[in-house]
Nucleic acid binder design. Structure first.
Length: 869
RNA sequence: GGGUCCUUAGCUCAGUUGGUUAGAGUGUCUGCUUGACGUGCAGGAAGUCAGUGGUUCGAAUCCACUAGGACCCACCA
């Protein structure tokens, strides 16, 4: 047999097994009516994307579930794919071309799209390749892209259907305009940032009067588009001016002074300049009062011909300076104040958005709201953690129509044609037959108006949709709850008449050690591939799940991965121990239930408990609970105790058959443990599983049966026998530690107890490294000894000549004090009549039992201490 | 302005229907070449469960308020 290295080295193991899994199609799924499907669709990453720590968390969670369910016998399917990410990709491609001196407008739509497709070919696969490194068990044969032919058709089909139902309409409305992308964006794509700006006070001259009306503004440049000044109808200060006109400075336009309830008398001067074409609230007021709407900007937010010549074709911030300077020159700048307000930025463009009046396509949201709310309220779709329901409800309750058109080229082009002469609108999946007389709408759809169909449209046939839909689990960050989660539910209810998924798991946000969000600009995000390279994919998967509780942000730093690395190494070495023994001891499955003792029964019991808790945790989406159960079973129960305790029988048994039985059983336990480990640590578990037995080609732990709960394996008696052994050993170790007796030195021990049996003694003797062990109810305390008292047992270690009496006295005193402190609490409770009368009987009994135990121990300890003094 | 979440050992966090002497990892201290593992083993020290008040026989856990922190929504020029 080949040499097994002392340390687990993940790198070659990972590559080997991922290849193996793919070659044997272990993750592919087809319709199989005899099996229940378990389906996850990947939240499609951008084709501009690189793997982030967020992806690691997100995808390892999904992989845990898909592997877990696959092993449980479900027909598990995880569909991977990517999103064309219209605006994000187009921005990148435009920039890339700009670097080469190519202008998007110059080369034209068709040529530009060619570049986009080249980009997609080049970068589209990067992230999915990186995901493989993490070990994700996706069915790669089903990989989808939101602009695949079939998907494209489906998106267009949906548009046409909704248009024909009257749910999609076109309108000239105020939208959030991104001057960088030169496109409208949705409300969700606007990020508000607090910014330190100024509040300028302008004096607007009243016509035919010497008076001025002072208005305050944060955006002086928009005054060039002012078409009114509004005051509150109750405001006495302005009563005499209502109905009069203002001569707008610089421009010279006459604009009315009018009243509107919207105006807050307390704020600023109580008079508001109104720019209906460049502010949402002004727009509403403009409509109410039939004000002129003067658009002063071009689509890149430079000024157009509607402003005086000197101010034309200039950037909005340049115009701001000019306007302020000019008004100051005219003596119309009253004052300037510092002012902090929130400015909406374009998520992709990174610049302040411009409220902009333009012709756009909208989707009516009203009809979508009710079913989407119902399924979540009724628990058909479950959110984890469920407090996100409130956020979801709030958004749905205040939803506005969705602007779905984008003035971009990369995306699903709106299937609408306008007649060149009559301007008639034609909307259909197929272009009009007399195409030469028509012109197609230039806009494409918002990315989310395609990805909201993801859960249904990744399945290309009706049979598949019928079988796999609805999917089971969606794992995603709460940041896209509106963009994607809510809209997928809407789409599901509308087009499939069913929910898109049953459970939604909202992941934590990964932060750095200082609690800051990980971001490219801060440079505080480690490259997950480096972490995988350094520690292994399993280590990273385990660690991130171990430290990421449901619904809480998590602070990550690379060195935390040592936790998972050490854990992987521990498992590796447990396997190594068994394999080394298997070189000398025969494995014989016929002996699986021969020569069983209480330790075997105990570990079987512990395993059942672990499996039960692990399963319950995963079923409740308490993933980090599952990792903790796994960790403590593997490390504390299996390695620290079980393996240690098998050594005696493995090395010292009188017959080879006993050795074989013990080792065979140990390997069997290990096999089961590996299955429990596998969803979290697929590579390591596969490697060890392949080593502990002969495996046929194509066999894999990833499709092996997940351990079933077997309550008959639970043995309470064995558990309590083991408990007793453990507490005696721990006590002896404790004494050794505090008395500084090195482990190499064997000691004599006396145990005063009447509940020990021969099979327990054997283990205590070897594990505690005991030379001579005496036990029984009639043991009497030796003269000079270190002592300890536990429930039903007094422990004496004779240390004549060696013992430091003062150390021993301190030890005993400390223990006595601890017990006395604990007893105070119990006595207080038990002497309280109301406790005895009101608390449940079991609780009172438990307290009584504690009291008796502690009092007995205390009494013994005190007499031992007295002997010493 | 409206809402959600958090505050437990030096650090990172468990503690899920109120009943343990409040746990783990890490760090720290002590000892250890124990026939898998020093990426390890054994042991020790370390906590006014943010504060105040309330409900209760009993509160880290439930309620109210206060303080500090994170986030979401809205957006008054």
């Amino acid at each position: 047999m080949k040499e097994i290295p002392k340390a687990y080295s993940p790198n070659e193991v990972e590559d080997k097994w991922y290849k193996y899994w793919e070659e044997h199609n272990l993750f592919s799924s087809e319709i199989d009516e005899t099996k229940e499907p378990y389906t996850i669709v990947i939240p499609p990453p951008n084709i501009t994307g690189m793997l982030t720590m967020g992806h690691i968390l997100n995808n390892s969670i999904q992989d845990v579930y898909i592997r877990y369910k696959r092993m449980q016998g479900f027909n598990a399917l995880w569909v991977p794919g990517t999103d064309h990410a219209s605006i994000a990709t187009e921005t990148k491609v435009v920039n890339y071309l700009k670097e080469q001196g190519i202008d998007k407008e110059e080369i034209g739509r068709e040529e530009f799209l060619k570049h986009c497709h080249v980009w997609k070919e080049k970068y589209g696969g990067i992230i999915t390749k990186q995901l493989r490194k993490l070990g994700v068990s996706c069915d790669w044969k089903r990989e989808r892209f939101t602009m695949d032919d079939e998907y494209y058709k489906s998106v267009i089909h949906t548009f046409v259907k909704l248009y024909k139902e009257g749910l999609i309409y076109r309108g000239n409305r105020m939208v959030n305009w991104c001057p960088v992308s030169k496109s409208a964006i949705s409300d969700e794509e606007v990020i508000f940032k607090s910014s330190n700006g100024k509040l300028w006070y302008f004096k607007y001259p009243v016509k035919d009067s010497n008076e001025f009306v002072i208005v305050a503004t944060t955006r002086p440049e928009t005054m060039l588009g002012d078409t009114g000044v509004a005051v509150n109808p109750k405001d006495e200060r302005f009563k005499h001016l209502i109905g009069k006109k203002i001569i707008l400075p610089i421009v010279g336009r006459e604009i009315p002074i009018f009243t509107d309830d919207y105006v807050d008398m307390e704020f600023g001067t109580g008079a508001v300049k109104i720019t209906p074409a460049h502010d949402v609230n002004d727009y509403d007021m403009g409509k109410r009062h039939s004000l002129e709407m003067i658009n002063i900007f071009k689509e890149d937010a430079t000024t157009n011909k509607n402003v005086p010549l000197d101010y034309q074709s200039k950037d909005r911030y340049e115009v701001r300076k000019l306007v302020v300077a000019k008004l100051e020159e005219l003596g119309l700048l009253e004052k300037t104040e510092d002012y902090t307000n929130n400015v909406g930025y374009s998520e992709r463009g990174g610049v302040p958005i411009e409220p902009y009046l333009s012709e756009q396509w909208f989707m009516k949201m009203e009809d979508f709201v009710k079913p989407a709310l119902e399924v979540v309220r009724e628990g058909k779709v479950n959110f984890h953690p469920n407090h996100w329901i409130k956020t979801y409800e709030h958004w749905l309750g205040n939803i506005r129509d969705w602007c779905i058109s984008r003035q971009l080229w990369w995306g699903h082009r709106i299937p609408v044609w306008y007649h060149n002469e009559t301007n008639e609108i034609y909307c259909d999946e197929n272009p009009p037959t007399d195409l030469e007389n028509w012109t197609q709408d230039n806009d494409v759809l918002d990315t989310w108006a395609s990805s909201w169909l993801w859960a249904q449209d990744v399945f290309t046939s009706e049979e598949e949709q019928k079988y796999y839909y609805p999917t089971n689990l969606l794992v995603t960050g709460p940041d896209i709850i509106f963009f994607w989660v809510a809209r997928m539910i809407m789409a599901g209810m509308k087009f499939m008449n069913d929910i898109p998924f049953k459970d939604v798991y909202f992941t934590s946000i990964i932060r750095d050690e200082q609690g800051r969000k990980m971001s490219k600009s801060l440079g505080n995000s480690p490259d997950p591939l480096d972490v995988i390279d350094q520690y292994g994919a399993d280590a990273l998967r385990f660690t991130i799940n171990y430290i990421a509780p449901l619904g809480q942000d998590v602070q990550f730093s690379t060195d935390k991965t040592e936790l998972g690395r050490n854990f992987a190494n521990k498992i590796w070495n447990a396997g190594r121990f068994l394999l080394m023994n298997a070189e000398n001891i025969k494995i014989d499955n016929n002996l699986l239930d021969k020569h069983v003792d209480f330790v075997d029964e105990w570990i079987a019991t512990k395993f059942q408990n672990a499996i039960e808790q692990y399963t319950t945790s995963l079923d409740k989406y308490e993933i980090n609970g599952a990792t903790k159960i796994l960790y403590s079973y593997v490390w504390n129960d299996f390695c620290d105790w079980y393996i240690e305790l098998t050594k005696d029988r493995l090395y010292n048994s009188e017959s080879e058959e006993i050795k074989s039985a013990v080792l065979t059983r140990a390997i069997n336990h290990f096999d089961n443990m590996l299955r429990m480990i596998h969803p979290f640590m697929p590579f390591l578990s596969e490697e060890l599983w392949s080593l502990i037995a002969e495996r046929k080609d194509g066999e894999s732990i990833s499709v092996a049966q997940f351990p079933l709960l077997d309550k008959s394996a639970i043995n309470k008696l064995a558990e309590s026998k083991m408990d007793f052994v453990q507490s005696i050993i721990t006590s002896i170790r404790n004494i050794r530690g505090e008395m500084n007796i090195p482990p190499s030195k064997k000691i004599d021990v006396l145990l005063k107890t009447d509940t020990l049996e021969e099979d327990q003694i054997k283990y205590i003797q070897t594990i505690a490294r005991i030379n001579k062990l005496e036990f029984g109810a009639d043991i009497s305390k030796p003269k000079a000894s270190a002592s300890s008292v536990i429930k039903n047992c007094e422990i004496y270690i004779p240390l004549e000549g060696i013992i430091d009496l003062q150390v021993e006295r301190d030890r005993l005193t400390k223990e006595i004090q601890r017990l006395e402190g604990a007893l105070i609490g119990v006595n207080k409770k038990l002497s309280n009549e109301r406790f005895v009368n009101n608390a449940p009987k079991e609780v009172v009994e438990k307290e009584n039992a504690k009291k008796t135990d502690w009092e007995n121990s205390l009494e013994t300890l005190k007499s031992i201490l007295d002997d010493l003094t």
